[in-house]
Design a protein around this nucleic acid. Sequence first.
DNA 1: TAATTGTGAAGCATATTTGCGGCAGATACC
DNA 2: GGTATCTGCCGCAAATATGCTTCACAATTA
Lengths: 227, 227
Amino acid sequence: MSREGILLIEDDKDILELVEYNLSKEGYQVKGVVSGEEALRIARSQLPGLILLDIMLPDLDGLEICKILKNDPKTSHIPIVMLTAKGEESDIVAGLELGADDYITKPFSIKVLIARVRTVLRRKPSVTGDDSPIRIGNMQIHPGRHEVMIDEERVDLTLTEYRILHFLARRPGWVFTRSQIVNAVRGDDYPVTDRSVDVQIAGLRKKLGPFGSHIETVRGIGYRFKE
Amino acid sequence: MSREGILLIEDDKDILELVEYNLSKEGYQVKGVVSGEEALRIARSQLPGLILLDIMLPDLDGLEICKILKNDPKTSHIPIVMLTAKGEESDIVAGLELGADDYITKPFSIKVLIARVRTVLRRKPSVTGDDSPIRIGNMQIHPGRHEVMIDEERVDLTLTEYRILHFLARRPGWVFTRSQIVNAVRGDDYPVTDRSVDVQIAGLRKKLGPFGSHIETVRGIGYRFKE
DNA sequence: TAATTGTGAAGCATATTTGCGGCAGATACC
DNA sequence: GGTATCTGCCGCAAATATGCTTCACAATTA
């Protein structure tokens, strides 16, 4: 799950699916769970980037979960956003005192939720802007300088190689077809064979050295940059 | 009649009345007709929310009706559930391929019928786009990433396996014939044996582990993904 | 002209299809 | 109702097809 993942704890299956669906659509990797016990387990093992926590849960109280997570140094840094029903003001206050970072009252609009999530995860937005630097492991892409560094070492890429890498790395984990890549890099309907992409990819992999393995071939579809 | 109405086409007067009576009792507005011609007329003018169609009819063949309705943009969205006698698998297959949405074999219990009707009418007309993520239990299909997760675990599927799973899971509970699956996955009239689908399904089941049992064999017809 | 980008073909790895034998559910017959 | 037969599904492994990579060279660009 990692820094991008969102852990969603909500016992109402409908809301769970709704939120999960919408956040997934935004490119976040969401794990939804219904029970508090499971939530704790996953929070500890996967260390998500954000936790959305319903206060009213069947087994463990949401506030209890919040307290436990915030008291454990391993998980205390993870932002927690509470989901509460209107009229549970006292819970909100209690939650914030226990260390929760924000809250949203139900019923909430999906737009609001997404906006809030994005704000909290702002440090690492799921889809980075065109010119924000991207960092993946010890590789960095600086669109401003148009250069790629691995371990403080400058990697010398050609223009096309750079563009392809940047394009893929902006959405790690997503698969793109060769033609999507061509369109992104050379503009729509640029007349080249798919082979051409393959060759560029091959060049990239070679120049990236050990990092080259981050560029995955997805047989039958295209390529993906894996985190 | 509108979205709630049910059009029932059945030439056996006894069954007609039985079904009509029971569905009415459930609160549905039912219009029962005996002839195919009349059925077409009513379907077009009243646009019911569901059509229950007996395959064996005196005048027009039920399959013919199905075809006509499914080819007319005005009526093609109306779900059609076929009523067929046991042992008419070929009719069922033909019907499904013509666009029927489900089938019930006679003799059927009224309970089963009502349950089926309820399910079909409750189904959202949601046209889940090709790339919206799908979640079933703790399995997630993420088209953007082109990957399937079960319990946060990535399942490694080949292209065809992935496509078949996606196709089936988009309409859980619906049965598809092998040829429908092939058409969906490789394009219409792709020349392969049914056998090939079986093998892909077998592979899927194996790779999905415990989840594999969600893919059900419907003997004589094809496969279905059950929720 | 040198560097970059594109093409087509050969080689290789992997995915897909097919055919067969076995098995189980369904049907027909007594 | 019980048994024989028929039909359709599944597992396996061989055969085939598909798609990726690499390479040498051609075309393009700066």
